[in-house]
Simulated scan of single mutants.
Amino acid sequence: MKPINSTIERLKPSGIRKYFDLANAMEGVISLGVGEPDFDTPWHISAKAVESFAEGHTHYTANRGLIALRRQIANYYRNRYGIDYDPESEILVTVGGSEAVDLCCRTIIEPGDEVIVLDPNYVAYEPAILMAGGVPVRIPLTQAHDFKLLPEDLEQAITERTKAVIVNFPSNPTGGVMTREDYARLVPILKASGIYVISDEIYSELVFDGEFCSPAHFDEIRDQVLVINGFSKAFAMTGWRLGYLLANPELSAQLTKVHQFVIMSAPTSAQYAAIEALEHGMPDIAAMRGEYEARRNLICARLNRMGLTTNVPKGTFYVFANITSSGLMSDEFCVRLLEEQKVAVVPGTAFGESGEGFVRISYATSMEQIKEACARIEGFLETLRDA
């Protein structure tokens, strides 16, 4: 038998899934590991998918997606964030944000191109770069700077071989946010270098402090920016697998070319549901965001009282807790917490080398579960002190 692709063979399985699978094999586990809303998709959104079946909408759509959905996406970005995209030529509906990440990498990366990623970063970015023949270049982010990307670090990381930088704010796993002022300091560097900016904005609706800002807000670099967003996090639609890509017309045409050969079109029923979400789902987002914020406030207060120094995240539904006071490395902390107290969290090292000394805790679960998990974590820390 001939060997398989060596790049694929060298890829490591997701560090998130490892702990999810371990937790599933045990009884009585409180899982604060996987980043998925615990809310069901609001029924009025699901009902539109059911209605689409009844009306016979079970066929392919245009490669780019339903024009009615693309117009809603354009309206949403214009009204919500003040950024204009043409639904005919600059919007592509994808199978979740994950397909959008892959499309970006396959479309712009040539073998040997360097792509800057932030460390820690979402687990799918580096594999997507590697599978496209690129070379990931990491910029360490620090808790002291609230896990923001600093201009001096970006400037130092850019070389003649740099093709793009991937940013994800609000951030999975840190909950960090970049303000308009933060991005403004990066814009001259990005403009001068001409590199692409892949901006994963899947958590744009989950900002608790201040307002969301996209690098596409800046006209000077707007055509360099590829915006990724979707419906999974904001509308509790993870299983619907629907996202979208916003880019300038020339770039969008090339992204669509890859999409049409690999996917054809995103699921039709999900697109009808997404139209309803954008038309009438803003109150649902507000309600869920309010609940997440209350959970965030509780868990951060509890963790900090335990001595696990935690920055209060300004977005997402994650906290990135500093566990160095426990004396354990991240992986050992997670294994022992799961085995001894049946609480599943994810080691920071699942997201990059700079995640050592941290664990990612998802608060996308009920307040009761969070309170019980905090009590168990506190008990675990007490056993470490007594040992």
Rank of each mutant, 00 (worst) to 15 (best):
W43R: 15
F169H: 07
R71I: 04
E110Y: 03
S6D: 12
V359G: 01
P13E: 09
P42M: 04
S366A: 09
T309Y: 12
D119P: 03
I275R: 04
I263L: 12
I139K: 03
K12P: 07
Q260F: 10
C213M: 08
D21N: 14
E340S: 11
K18Y: 13
F169W: 05
L22W: 09
A132K: 01
F20K: 09
A364F: 01
D200S: 13
T268C: 12
R305C: 12
Q143W: 05
E279V: 13
N248Q: 13
R17W: 11
L149E: 05
T107E: 08
V50T: 13
T61M: 10
D21Y: 12
S325I: 06
F351S: 05
Y85A: 13
S6A: 15
S199D: 14
L308C: 06
K371M: 12
S204G: 03
A157W: 01
N121P: 03
R64K: 15
A286V: 11
E382D: 14
N63D: 13
R106P: 05
A23W: 01
G97N: 12
I189M: 07
F53C: 13
E372I: 11
L381T: 08
H145P: 02
E250Q: 15
I189D: 02
P111Q: 10
N121L: 12
R222G: 02
D119N: 13
I16W: 00
S232L: 11
D219Y: 06
R185C: 10
H57C: 08
A270E: 10
F235W: 14
V225Q: 03
G134V: 01
Q254S: 15
G352E: 04
I166S: 06
T159R: 10
R78E: 12
G35K: 07
I45D: 03
S232H: 06
W43L: 15
E353Y: 10
V93A: 06
I8V: 14
L278C: 04
G327F: 02
E332M: 15
A49T: 08
Q224R: 09
T179N: 02
N311M: 08
R17T: 12
E110Q: 14
E372K: 13
T61F: 09
G327H: 01
A247N: 03
E368Y: 09
A128T: 05
P111F: 10
N172W: 12
S330E: 07
F351M: 07
A375P: 02
A23H: 05
A47C: 10
K18Q: 10
M131P: 00
T58W: 14
L149Q: 05
P111R: 08
E181R: 06
S214I: 08
I30S: 02
N311K: 09
A387T: 14
V227D: 00
F358R: 04
A286F: 08
